[in-house]
């Protein structure tokens, strides 16, 4: 059977995926249904059946299948190789930024699309790297085309805030991209968790804490930058990380950041501070 193609777009970056396994195609089409695109791609991913020479032991097979954290990105010359942490010679994919080409082996016929979302996280990191954009683990909401970001560790209430905000549009309850466009910053939903391919002008960033009543405390820029960096998706490339830190320092200069305490009864949007 011939390969099928999907184009996926998020935060202004579009990639075309060539998929060999029919089940994988159906899985990805459903998984990325809100992010399918028709525009010209910025890069391609060849998502193919593994090479016959790639021998994966049963132990490594189980390690990879059970723990996506067992994968790492290794830079060698101009390519980034996606490999098993315990056996770096076992490359299961690569990203070639110069050629805008990527390859990922679709290892497990029984688990369609394995590692694809982990792989594209690295792809976005590398392709955003020099485009004034970076990703972070947070919940994003849009209200009247204005974007609000809610950060915090698991259990801090990101999804709860999303559920409590009936008049807002969800961008994503798991992963966002902040992008500089002209003089302002914009927040985009990314295809993780519940997500929409939408964006809004960034108005404020809030670091969540559970409390008895609602309270907001403005954070000084250096502290806000540390907190944003803590939640940003950073990997191994020093110059990209330096770009991201530079971008974050401009975000905290322009966008107000607050420590926010709230409870389930809190009228979040009524009490929200006035943001310029």
């Amino acid at each position: 059977m011939s390969a099928k193609f999907l184009k996926i777009e998020a935060a202004g970056i579009c990639f075309r995926v060539r998929i060999e396994r029919p089940r994988t195609y159906l899985y990805l089409k459903r998984r990325f249904k809100n992010f399918l695109s028709k525009r010209k791609p910025d890069f391609t991913i060849n998502f193919i059946k593994p090479d016959k020479d790639l021998k994966i032991s049963r132990e490594l097979f189980e390690e990879l299948a059970n723990n996506p954290q067992s994968l790492i990105l290794i830079k060698s010359e101009e390519k980034y190789f996606f490999s098993a942490k315990s056996e770096p010679s076992k490359t299961i994919g690569f990203i070639d930024r110069n050629r805008n080409e990527c390859l990922l082996y679709d290892l497990f016929a029984r688990w369609p699309g394995s590692f694809f979302t982990d792989f594209i996280l690295f792809c976005f990191y590398l392709f955003f790297g020099y485009r004034n954009s970076f990703m972070l683990h947070a919940c994003g909401l849009s209200q009247n085309s204005e974007g609000y970001i809610f950060c915090g560790p698991s259990g801090s209430g990101k999804s709860t805030v999303a559920r409590m905000s009936k008049d807002s549009q969800l961008l994503s309850d798991e992963r966002l991209t902040i992008s500089k466009n002209g003089e302002g910053f914009y927040v985009y939903g990314m295809p993780w968790g519940k997500a929409q391919n939408n964006y809004a002008k960034l108005k404020g960033i809030f670091f969540l804490n559970r409390g008895k009543k609602i309270a907001f405390k403005r954070l000084k820029p250096s502290l806000a930058a540390s907190r944003i960096i803590h939640d940003a998706s950073l990997f191994l490339d020093t110059s990209i990380n330096a770009n991201i830190l530079n971008l974050v320092s401009r975000v905290v200069d322009l966008v107000p950041c607050y420590e926010m305490h709230f409870s389930l009864e809190s009228p979040i949007w009524e009490k929200m501070p006035k943001l310029n």
Partner: peptide, 20 residues
Amino acid sequence: PWRIIEEEAVLVSVDRGEVI
């Protein structure tokens, strides 16, 4: 990577997963 922001410093140690 590091940056001075309003007289304070933010350092990013990726291999330790730490922000200082």
